[in-house]
Simulated scan of single mutants.
Amino acid sequence: MQSAFDSLAADSLAVADSLALADSLRADSAVVDTSGGIGGLSQDVGVAAEALGSGRFEDAASILAASLKAFAFDNLLPAAITALAFWIALRILLGVLRRALGRSKRIDAGVQQLILRFSRFVIVALAVVAVLDKIGIAVAPFIAGLGIAGIALGFAAQDTVQNLIAGITILLDRPFHVGDNIELHDTFGTVEEITLRTTRIRTLDNQMAILPNANVISDRIINHSMLRALRVLVPFGIAYKESPEAARQVVLALTEGDQRLHPDYAPAVVVTELADSSVNMELRLHLKDSKLEVSLRLEYQEKVFEALKAAGIEIPFPHLQLFVDEAKAFQGSRLLGPGPEADAGG
Rank of each mutant, 00 (worst) to 15 (best):
F317S: 12
H286L: 02
K288Q: 12
E299S: 07
L132V: 04
A342W: 07
V45S: 05
L283W: 04
A66C: 01
G110T: 01
A152M: 15
R56I: 04
D173W: 13
P235H: 04
L211N: 02
L227A: 09
L41C: 07
G150P: 12
S62H: 06
F176T: 03
S225T: 10
A85Q: 05
L233F: 14
I182H: 01
A109V: 13
R91G: 10
S54E: 09
A214W: 10
L84V: 15
A16P: 00
L230T: 07
D159H: 12
L101P: 04
F57Y: 15
V45P: 02
L97C: 08
I137R: 03
A344T: 00
I315D: 03
F142C: 02
L132C: 04
F317H: 15
I88M: 02
A60S: 07
I151R: 10
S29M: 08
I81C: 05
H185P: 08
D219L: 07
A49E: 14
S119P: 00
R26F: 06
F86L: 04
T190Y: 13
L184M: 14
P267F: 08
Q249S: 03
K328E: 15
A27P: 01
L52N: 07
L320Q: 13
P235V: 09
V271W: 03
G36W: 06
R98W: 11
L76E: 11
A275D: 12
A72T: 15
R248V: 01
S67L: 04
G167M: 13
L287W: 02
A83G: 09
F317I: 14
D108Q: 15
A266N: 07
N215G: 13
V178A: 09
G145R: 09
Q112V: 08
L211D: 02
R220A: 15
G154I: 12
L298S: 10
I168N: 05
L298Y: 11
Q158E: 14
A229L: 03
I221Q: 03
A66F: 05
R228H: 13
A166E: 05
P316N: 12
K241F: 09
A130G: 03
D186Q: 00
I81V: 11
F188A: 08
A214S: 14
E302N: 09
T198L: 09
S277N: 11
F305E: 12
L211T: 10
L320K: 12
D264A: 13
I238Y: 02
R202P: 03
G167F: 11
V271T: 11
E299I: 00
A49F: 11
G46N: 15
N163E: 13
I201T: 05
V161T: 08
N280A: 01
S12K: 15
H177S: 10
G102S: 07
L230M: 10
V32R: 08
E183F: 11
L252M: 00
R248M: 03
V216Q: 01
T199Y: 07
S67P: 06
F57C: 02
Q2D: 14
L68R: 04
S119R: 03
P316I: 15
L285P: 01
D276R: 11
G39I: 14
D11G: 11
A310P: 01
D23Y: 08
A268P: 00
R26C: 10
G346K: 13
T82K: 02
T195G: 08
A166G: 06
L126A: 06
F57P: 00
A100Q: 06
I63Q: 02
A72W: 12
K134H: 01
P244L: 05
G102R: 07
F73N: 09
A83M: 08
D17E: 15
V129R: 00
Q2I: 15
L283I: 05
S243I: 06
